[in-house]
Amino acid sequence: MIAFRDAVVADADILCELARRTFSDTFGHLYDPGDLAAFLATHTPERWRNELADPAFAIRLAEQDGSAIGYAKLGPPSLPFEPRGASIELRQFYLLAPAQGTGAAQDMMAWVLDTARGRGADNLYLSVFVDNHRARRFYARHGFERIGEYGFMVGNHRDTDDVMRLTL
C-alpha cells in the first residue's frame, strides 16, 4: 500500500537522500562521475529545509511500508522563460523504479493538478529531459504541451530539456 502525505521540514534529510537516489538511478549512467557528484551536491538538507519552510513550495511525499519512494515538488516558476498569467512549476516528480507502474504517479499527478489549481495557477510548467521518453509520454497524457527547450546543467554537462506547459 502506497500512502501520500504533505512533506514537512522534518523530512528534509529523507527528501535530500531520495532526490539524490532517484536522480542517480534514473540518469546517473549518463554523466561523468565528477559532473554527477557536483550536481548531487546541490541537493542539501539545508536547501530542502528552506523549501519545505517556504509557503511558495508544496511537496508531496509517497511512502510504502514506512519508506519514502517518491515525491513531487511544486514551486514558483524558475525556468528561463516568461510564464503566462498566474503560473506554478512542477520542479521535480520522481518515483523509485519499484514504484513505477503501480499507479502512484497518477495519484501524485492528481495532487499536483489539484494543488496548482488550488493555489490559483492558470498555467503549470515543467521541464523534462528530451530522452526521457516515458516521462514525456506521461506528461503528454496529462495534457502538457512542449513550448520550448533549455539547457539543464549537470555539473559541466549540458542536457537539453523540453519545457512543457499545461493550461489549467
Rank of each mutant, 00 (worst) to 15 (best):
V128T: 06
A37I: 10
S24R: 15
P45H: 00
L95E: 06
M109K: 01
T102H: 13
A99G: 09
V128C: 07
P77L: 02
F39N: 03
W48G: 03
R20N: 07
H43V: 02
L90P: 01
P45V: 00
G70A: 08
A110R: 15
C16K: 05
L95D: 03
A105W: 01
A53G: 12
E63Y: 02
P80E: 06
G34V: 15
L74N: 10
A68H: 08
A53H: 09
F93V: 02
M108D: 03
L95Y: 11
L30P: 00
W48T: 04
A121P: 09
A68W: 04
R21C: 04
A68L: 06
L30C: 07
L90Y: 08
Y31S: 04
N123D: 13
L15H: 06
F39A: 03
H43F: 13
A58Y: 12
G75R: 10
D13M: 11
D114K: 15
R21D: 04
F39T: 03
P76S: 14
L18R: 07
G66C: 12
A72Q: 12
H29M: 14
L90C: 07
D54N: 15
L30K: 11
M108T: 00
R47C: 02
L79R: 00
T102M: 13
L61N: 05
A62R: 01
D25L: 13
A121R: 05
L90G: 04
P76A: 15
C16F: 07
F27M: 10
A116R: 06
L79Q: 00
A97Y: 14
E89Y: 06
